[in-house]
Amino acid sequence: MAEPKKLDMLNRDPNSINDELRVRFEDVIGEPESAHSPECAWNCANLCYEGGRKCCYATLTVLCSWLCGLCWGCEFACLTFSYIYSWTPGLKRFRLYCGMQQKFYETCLACCLGPCASTCGLLLSNIKISQG
């Protein structure tokens, strides 16, 4: 079995899958020029927001991340299993059936409509148009 890939502990979103998730204070709360609070209130709000966000996130990840990781790992394992042992063979079977149906219809059309189309083509090929 392959050794697990070492995790990058600094860049934890190397594929940028959560770029839209901006939740820093300045990304969520902003005061227009006409409605500025005192600096001490603004700094206090920033400290409370960031402290509460980091503390709550840290608590939730400690309590729940292992369970979420387990559930999502099982979910993707089941999806991978289903893809390999159900969807891919089913799609292959469907393509084979469709290929047979296509050959059947091609044969029917060539036998039934082919002679009629050839005759019409011969009749219409003798038409000559001249400008008078």
Rank of each mutant, 00 (worst) to 15 (best):
Asn11Asp: 10
Leu79His: 03
Leu63Trp: 00
Lys103Gln: 14
Gly73Pro: 01
Ser125Trp: 07
Val62Leu: 08
Leu113Ser: 05
Cys64Ser: 02
Ser34Ile: 11
Cys98Pro: 00
Tyr49Ile: 05
Thr107Phe: 05
Phe104Trp: 14
Asp13His: 07
Phe76Trp: 05
Gln102Arg: 01
Tyr83Asn: 11
Met9Pro: 00
Thr59Phe: 14
Met100Ser: 04
Cys112Met: 15
Gln101Glu: 06
Cys74His: 03
Glu31Tyr: 07
Arg12Gln: 13
Cys78Asp: 03
Trp66Asp: 15
Ile29Lys: 04
Leu70Gln: 07
Cys40Pro: 01
Phe76Glu: 06
Glu39Ser: 11
Phe94Thr: 10
Arg12Thr: 10
Glu33Pro: 11
Ala110Val: 05
Leu60Glu: 08
Thr59Ser: 12
Gly52Lys: 02
Leu7Trp: 00
Val23Arg: 05
Glu26Trp: 03
Asp8Tyr: 06
Gly51Asn: 12
Ala45Pro: 07
Gln131His: 03
Cys108Trp: 08
Asn43Met: 02
Phe25Ile: 00
Lys103Val: 11
Val28Tyr: 04
Thr88Val: 13
Cys111Leu: 14
Ala35Met: 10
Pro32Leu: 02
Glu106Phe: 08
Tyr105Ser: 09
Gln131Cys: 04
Glu50Ala: 14
Ile129Asp: 09
Glu75Asp: 10
Asn126Gly: 13
Ile127Val: 07
Leu47Trp: 08
Arg22Ser: 07
Phe25His: 00
Ser37Asn: 11
Ser125Pro: 01
Gln131Tyr: 03
Gly73Val: 04
Val28Gly: 04
Leu60Asp: 08
Ser65Cys: 06
Phe76Ala: 02
Gly121Met: 11
Trp42Met: 01
Tyr83Lys: 09
Ile17Trp: 08
Ile17Gly: 07
Phe81Ser: 08
Ala117Cys: 15
Leu122Glu: 15
Trp87Val: 11
Cys74Ile: 11
Pro14Asn: 03
Glu75Asn: 12
Leu67Phe: 15
Asp8Glu: 12
Gln102Trp: 01
Asn18Asp: 04
Glu26Tyr: 07
Leu21Trp: 12
Arg22Asp: 05
Leu47Tyr: 05
Glu75Lys: 11
Tyr83Thr: 10
Pro14His: 03
Met1Pro: 02
Tyr49Met: 05
Pro4Trp: 02
Ile17Glu: 08
Arg22Ala: 09
Met1His: 04
Glu31Thr: 06
Asp19Phe: 14
Cys98Gln: 09
Leu70Pro: 01
Ala58Ile: 01
Ala58Ser: 05
Glu26Arg: 10
Lys6Ala: 09
Asp8Gly: 07
Cys78Leu: 09
Leu113Pro: 00
Asn126Ser: 15
Glu39Val: 07
Arg53Met: 02
Cys56Pro: 03
Thr88Leu: 10
Ile129Tyr: 14
Ala41Asn: 02
Ile129Gly: 08
Tyr83Trp: 10
Pro32Ala: 01
Glu50Val: 15
Arg12Ser: 08
Leu79Arg: 02
Tyr97Cys: 13
Gln131Arg: 06
Ser82Cys: 08
Lys54Leu: 04
Gly51Phe: 09
Met1Trp: 03
Ile17Thr: 11
Arg24Trp: 13
Phe94Leu: 10
Cys40Glu: 12
Tyr49Asn: 03
Ser82Gln: 06
Thr80Glu: 04
Phe76Asn: 03
Cys56Met: 15
Thr119His: 12
Leu7Glu: 02
Asp13Ser: 06
Trp72Ala: 00
Cys98Glu: 08
Asp13Lys: 06
Cys55Phe: 12
Cys68Thr: 13
Thr119Ile: 13
Ala117Thr: 15
Cys108His: 09
Ile17Ser: 06
Gln102Val: 00
Ser118Pro: 02
